[in-house]
Design a protein around this nucleic acid. Sequence first.
DNA 1: TATGAATGAGCCTTCATTCAT
DNA 2: GATGAATGAAGGCTCATTCAT
Lengths: 217, 217, 217, 217
Amino acid sequence: MGSEVSTGAGRKARGREDRRQAILDGAFAVFARQGYAQTCVQEVAREAGVAKPTVYNHLADKESLYREAVEAAADRVGARCLAVVDALREVAADTDPEEGLRTVGRELLRICHDEEARAVQRLAGAEAARFPGLEASARERTALRIRSALADRLARLALAGRLRPCEPEPAAEHFLALLTGPLEYRPDADPDALAEAAVDVFLRAYGPGAGPRPGLG
Amino acid sequence: MGSEVSTGAGRKARGREDRRQAILDGAFAVFARQGYAQTCVQEVAREAGVAKPTVYNHLADKESLYREAVEAAADRVGARCLAVVDALREVAADTDPEEGLRTVGRELLRICHDEEARAVQRLAGAEAARFPGLEASARERTALRIRSALADRLARLALAGRLRPCEPEPAAEHFLALLTGPLEYRPDADPDALAEAAVDVFLRAYGPGAGPRPGLG
Amino acid sequence: MGSEVSTGAGRKARGREDRRQAILDGAFAVFARQGYAQTCVQEVAREAGVAKPTVYNHLADKESLYREAVEAAADRVGARCLAVVDALREVAADTDPEEGLRTVGRELLRICHDEEARAVQRLAGAEAARFPGLEASARERTALRIRSALADRLARLALAGRLRPCEPEPAAEHFLALLTGPLEYRPDADPDALAEAAVDVFLRAYGPGAGPRPGLG
Amino acid sequence: MGSEVSTGAGRKARGREDRRQAILDGAFAVFARQGYAQTCVQEVAREAGVAKPTVYNHLADKESLYREAVEAAADRVGARCLAVVDALREVAADTDPEEGLRTVGRELLRICHDEEARAVQRLAGAEAARFPGLEASARERTALRIRSALADRLARLALAGRLRPCEPEPAAEHFLALLTGPLEYRPDADPDALAEAAVDVFLRAYGPGAGPRPGLG
DNA sequence: TATGAATGAGCCTTCATTCAT
DNA sequence: GATGAATGAAGGCTCATTCAT
C-alpha cells in the first residue's frame, strides 16, 4: 500500500514505520553529538527532515525519543557483537582456538571503538538519573548478551579440551575485561595489540595446560 | 590560612575557603543525585546553606561549579585508591604477594562500589559533550594514577621474582580489568569473591612459575 | 431533504444534514464539559464518531463549531420554555391564574436546572470576548423569547381582570426574576418551593386586588 | 524598609506586596478584556509593567494568577456593595423605608453595571470547567455577602413594623432579584427606573399594609 | 467524501545570571 | 560579602488547520 516500494524512490521515508525509524535515527545522531539536555526536539526534527510536531506524532515526548533511540542503537550494537562472537562456532573442536579468540577480540575491540557503540554506552549511563532503567536495559542488550554468547563458546571449547575446565560466565567476563579494560587507560592503543595481549593472558590463565595454578606447587 | 580554626565556632563555614568547599560539596551531592541539567543553581545553594548569589561569588558559573566539584571528588577518590595500592609497599620482597594482591583487590572493589566513586565516573562521562576535557581529567585523577601506582608495585614484585618478567603498565591494566570488569556484568556480586577470582587469574598469567605460555608446547 | 430516511439504516448518520447535526451535538457536549479552550477539535470529532477533517468539511473552523452548537442548543432550550409558557393559554379567562402560574414556574425552574440550559448560559457568556454577539444571540433565543411569550399571557390575564392593570414586559421580567433569582443564592433549593414563593410575591404585587399600593394610604 | 513611602513617589510599586498587587490588578484587567485562554502571561506582565518571570516570582502559574485576580476583584466588588447596603442602617425605625430602599437599589444597580462587577461575574463563571470552586467562591464574596447584609436590614425593618413579618433571606433574594433580574432583558435600561420599579413591587409584596394576600378573599 | 499524516505558530514555564540593598 | 528580586533567553508541548490518499 505505498510503503512497500516507496523508500526505493530515493525520497524521504514514506511509510509510517520508515518515518519513525528516520526520526529515531536522527534522534540518536543528535543526542550522541550533543547530549540529552543540549538537544532540543527542533534539532532532532531537522536532522530527520520533518517538522517538530511530526516527531511528537511518532514519539510521545522527548524522553521516549531518547529512550527508544538509545535502545534501538543498543540492539544494533549488540547484534553486531553477537555476530562476531558467533564466528567462534566455526572453530573446529580439534583446532587451537588462539587464532579464533584473537579474531573475535580484534573485531569486538573495533566495534567498541566505533562511534555508535561508544555513544550507546555514554548516552545510556549519562542520564541514569532521568532514565532509571535505561542503563540496565542497554547493558542487557549489549554486554550481557555478548557475555552469554561468549560463555557458550568457551564452554564448548572447555568441553573439547581446548581450555581448562572452568565456569563459563566468569571466564567470559575475564576475557572481555582483559580485552576492553585497557581501553580505559589507552583509548587510542592499537586494537590488534590489545587483542593479542588479552588473548595471551587469557590463555595463560584458562588454557588447557593449566592444571592447578602454576607456581603453586 | 584562616580556615584552620574557623569552623570550630560551630556555625556554618566562615572562612572564605571553607565556604567554597561547602558549596563544592553541596554541588557534588546534588549533581550526583540529579545530573547536570536537572540541577539548578538554586538547589546547590540550598544544599550548601547559602543564597544563590553567594554561589556566584565563589564560582564563576554553573559550569565551573560542575567541573570543579567533579574534579575535587575525583581527587578524593583517587587519593583513597592510592592509599590502598600503596599498602602493597609493605609486601616484603620475599613474601608471596597473593594475599597482598587480594587485599588490594578487595579494597579497590569496595571503593569502586561506593556512591562517590560511581558518581564521579558517571558525572565525568555524562557531560562529555558540554565539558570536553572533563572525562580525561577525571580519568587522570583516578584510573591513570592508580595504574601508575600499581605498575610501580608490580614492577618491584617482578624484579623480586615474585611475578614473571613483564611490562608493568599492561600488567597493571590487566589486573585492574580483571578486578573491575566483572562488575559490569554483576554489579552486586560479592567483592571478595570477585577479588579472589581476579587474583587467581592474574597470578596464573603473571605468576613467577609461568615460563613460556602453558599449553604451547 | 435526504435525512428523513437516511438514519433508518441503523448505521451512523449518513445524510449530510444528519452528519452535521451529529457533529454539532457532539461539539456541544464536549464544549459543555470542558469549555472552549480546553476542547480540541480532535475530541469533538471523536465524540461525533468521525475523523477530524470531516468536522472541517461541515463547519468552517472551531469558532463556527462553537457558535453554531451553542445557538442550536439555545434554540432547543428556548423552544422547551416556550412550550411551558404557552400552556398558560389554557387558563380560562374566568379562572384564578394562581395554579397556572405555579405550574409554569415549576416547569421553567426545572428547565433552568437541567444541564443543557445551564450549559447554554455558561457557554454563551464564557466566551463573550471571542464571540462578541453570541451572548446576545443566545439571550434572544431564550430569555427574550420567553419574556415575550409570558408578557403576552400576562397581558391577557390583566385584560381579563385576573391581574391588576400593568405593563406586561416589566411584569414578565419581575415574574421571571422572582422565579430564577433565588437560584443564584440557593442553587439546590426545592424548585416547587421556589416557584410557590415567587408566585406568592408576584400575585401580592400584581394581583387584581391591588389598587394603589397597599399601605400608602 | 523602603516600601512604607515608596509608592508615594510616583514610581512603580516597590514593596513586595505592592508589586504583587500591581500584577494581580494587571492580570484582572487583561483577563477581563480577553478571557483566560486568549490572555498570555506575557501580556499580563506588560500590563503590570514587569517582566514575565517576575509574574512567576509572585504567582505560581497562570491558573493562580487568574484565581487570585478574580477573587481579589470579587472582594472589592463585594465590599462596595456591602457599604451600600449598610447605608440602610441609617434608616430610622420610624421612617418609611421606601426612599432608603430606592437609594440602595439605585446604587447596587450602578455597581452591577460597572465593568469590574460584570467582569467578576463573567470571569468566575466562564472558567468553571478549569476552576471548579471559583464560581462558588466569587458568589460567596459577592452575592451571598450582600444577601446576608440585606437580610439583616430587612429583618430589622420588619421588626420595626415597616415591613410585614417575613423570612429575611428569601425577602432579600426577592429584592435583589427584582432589582437585577430585568438587567438580563434590558441591560441598558435606566438604573433609576429599574430601581424604582423593583422597590414598588417589593413594597407591594412585603410592605407593612399587606395582611393576607390581596385578592384571596 | 472521509481520513491519516504533517505542519506552522504560539504559549507556559524554567533557569542562569545580574542589580540594588 | 551576602541576599531578595528581576530579567533575557530558550525549549517542550499542543493544536487548529491543510495535503495527499
